[in-house]
C-alpha cells in the first residue's frame, strides 16, 4: 500500500529521470549523427577532403575544404597570442591589485564584452578595419576572434590565478622576489595547468566561432591563401554557407566539415580533462 506521499516521491523521481534523459539525448544524438554523417563523407572523399578545393554546387565530386582548414589555422595562430597576452595582463592586474579602481573597471569591462553578441563584433570590425583596409582579410577575422575570445580567456586566467593560496605569494616576496618575478616564477608556474586549460578552451572558442567571421574574413574558397592580409575562409564559415544552400553536394561537404570541427573540439576537451586530472600540488 502506497501512501500519496510515497507515490508522489516515485512520480517525481520518474519525472526528473525522464526530463534529464531528454536533456542528454539531443547531445548524444548530435555527436553520433554528425560524426557518422561527416565521416561517411570524408571516407568517400578520401585524403582529397583535406587537400582539395570545395566542389561546384552541382558537382558530383565532394572535393575538399583545404582553404577553410588553412584559414581556420591561420586565424587561430594570429589571434591566439594576442588574446592570451592581453587576457593574461588583465588577469594579472585584477588579481594582483584586486581593490584598485582600475581592476574593478577592467573586471566589469570583461563581463560586458562577454555579453556583446559576436555578430556585433563582426559588424564593428567590418566598419573599423575591413572598410579602411578596402577588403576582407584573415587579419580582420583574427582581430574579431580575439575580441570575442578575450573576456573568455580573461575569466579562465583570473580564476586560475585567484585560486593560488596566498601563502605562495608571501613566500615569493619573503625571499625578495620582485613583483614580476613572483608572477613569472611562482604564480604562473603554480597555476600552469589551469592556465593551459584556459588556453585550450580559448583555442576551441576561436576555431568554432562563426558569427564573428561573417563580415571580416571574407570567403576565399577558390584557392589556398597563407597571407594575413588577403581574404580567407574558415571551417565554421564554410559550414554556415553550405548548410544554408540548396545544394546536396554542399550539404555533404558541410557534414564532413562539421564532423572535423566536432572532432577537433572533442580532442581539445579531453586534453583539458587529462591536464586537470594530473594536478598535484
Amino acid at each position: 500500500m502506497y501512501s500519496w506521499r510515497m507515490l508522489r516521491e516515485k512520480l517525481f523521481t520518474c519525472l526528473i529521470a525522464v526530463l534529464s534523459l531528454l536533456a542528454i539525448v539531443p547531445i548524444v544524438h548530435l555527436i553520433i549523427a554528425v560524426l557518422i554523417n561527416g565521416f561517411t563523407v570524408i571516407a568517400k572523399a578520401g585524403i582529397n577532403f583535406f587537400t582539395n578545393l570545395p566542389p561546384a554546387p552541382l558537382s558530383r565530386e565532394i572535393g575538399g575544404i583545404a582553404p577553410s582548414i588553412i584559414g581556420t589555422a591561420l586565424m587561430t595562430i594570429i589571434s591566439l597570442p594576442i588574446t592570451v597576452v592581453l587576457a593574461l595582463f588583465a588577469a594579472i592586474l585584477t588579481t594582483e591589485f584586486p581593490r584598485n579602481t582600475v581592476s574593478i573597471i577592467i573586471d566589469a569591462v570583461a563581463k560586458s564584452l562577454a555579453s556583446i553578441p559576436t555578430i556585433a563584433v563582426s559588424m564593428i570590425v567590418f566598419t573599423l578595419i575591413v572598410m579602411p583596409m578596402k577588403g576582407f582579410s584573415a587579419l580582420a577575422g583574427a582581430i574579431a576572434l580575439s575580441i570575442i575570445a578575450l573576456p573568455y580567456a580573461y575569466t579562465y586566467f583570473s580564476t586560475a590565478l585567484r585560486s593560488i593560496p596566498a601563502m605562495y605569494r608571501e613566500a615569493a616576496f619573503s625571499i625578495a622576489m620582485g613583483r614580476w618575478g613572483a608572477v613569472m616564477k611562482v604564480l604562473i608556474p603554480i597555476a600552469r595547468r589551469s592556465i593551459a586549460v584556459g588556453v585550450l578552451m580559448t583555442i576551441a572558442r576561436i576555431m568554432g566561432e562563426t558569427a564573428a567571421l561573417l563580415f571580416t574574413a571574407g570567403r576565399f574558397r577558390t584557392g589556398v591563401s597563407f597571407s594575413p592580409t588577403s581574404p580567407a575562409d574558415a571551417i565554421p564559415l564554410l559550414i554556415f554557407d553550405y548548410i544554408l544552400s540548396p545544394y546536396e553536394t554542399w550539404h555533404q561537404v558541410a557534414w564532413g566539415a562539421a564532423a572535423l570541427l566536432l572532432l577537433a573540439y572533442i580532442v581539445l576537451f579531453f586534453a583539458t580533462k587529462l591536464i586537470v586530472k594530473e594536478v598535484k600540488l
Binding site: 542528454i24 547531445i27 544524438h29 548530435l30 549523427a33 576551441a204 548548410i243 550539404h251 576537451f269
Partner: peptide
Amino acid sequence: VSSIVELMGGLPTIVYAVWASQY
C-alpha cells in the same frame, strides 16, 4: 553526466546549427 554537460557547453554553435536544421 557533468562532463557531457560541460562538453555541450563549449560546442561550437555551428555544429548545433547543422544538427538542428537537418534533424
